[in-house]
Amino acid sequence: MAKSVVSYGSYIPFLRIRREEYISALGSCGADIKEKAVMDIDEDTVTMAVEAASDALAGVDPARVGVLALASANFPYGEKFIAGTLVEALGLSGSVLTSHHGGSALAGSEAFLAALGLLDQTDREYALVIVSDAPQASPSSGLDHGFGAAACAFVLARDGSGLEFEGACSRAGEFMGLRYRTAGETGVRDIGVGAYSSMAYNETVSASLSGILEKMGRIPGHYRCLVMPQADVRADTALAKKMGFGEDQTRDGLVYNLVGDAGCCTPFLGLCRALESAGTGEKILVCTYGAGSGSHSMSFCLNGPLPASPRPVGSLLEKKRQIGYIHYLKLKRII
């Protein structure tokens, strides 16, 4: 048997802001969202990580977790060993192998792939991957409009029935000026050159996607579902179509319009959502994109039933309270 996801959990903050709030406050909304998730004043990527991981670990003995891989481009500290907080909060063993991933929206897939490798370095059965993100930009810039927040966590087993990892393909290249943040800055910037940005995205993502299809010897039709990066859903849809994927294949993994761009977490939250309707034997592709730029495509096959998450993405999407733009600015510590 191959390495597989044997359980998962996800978390979406309770608070939401609707597109209309932006329009009534600012005259327009620069993102294709219906609404997006907003962390409360006492939440951050670590608290969201604990929420998602607690659900993923619901049926797992924490002492049997040998690897902890964490991903966020927005850890609450610029420098501090973060895994310790998770080890104490989740009751994991102090001898767990840890690995932190950040720096771009590619951090999630980097953590996932690293955990698969680190599993070979531990005698314990499980690796825990936690992907939690909440991108930040100054609310005065349009970049903020689409930025949401979410977390998800996956328990990987060396041998186990569930979502089997089949393989991954990567693309890395240099495209500076897109979604970047200098050391010490709290929000991201972007030079805002549309054609350049599209070129970077299309070149990078299509390379990793075609790479995985070639590596697996498959065509788009072999996959039940393709989960795209969802930083720019319009670009995702166009590219998926160009690559030969139909709308019915990308629909199940879409979360952006209700959660917003949750950074490195969005495609994984999309995966969690897709898993809620996937059947045994079906294959899923997950594609991530980090501006700058890099992309990972990962191929999975559902080879056995997964335990239902205590809080399915569907229910988290419904459990919410809407806030106004003033409240939003308070949460962003602007006022």
Partner: peptide, 11 residues
């Protein structure tokens, strides 16, 4: 699990 407060830059 939540942030309780922050002091000395420590959450």
């Amino acid at each position: 699990f939540r942030r309780i407060y922050e002091e000395e830059g420590v959450i």
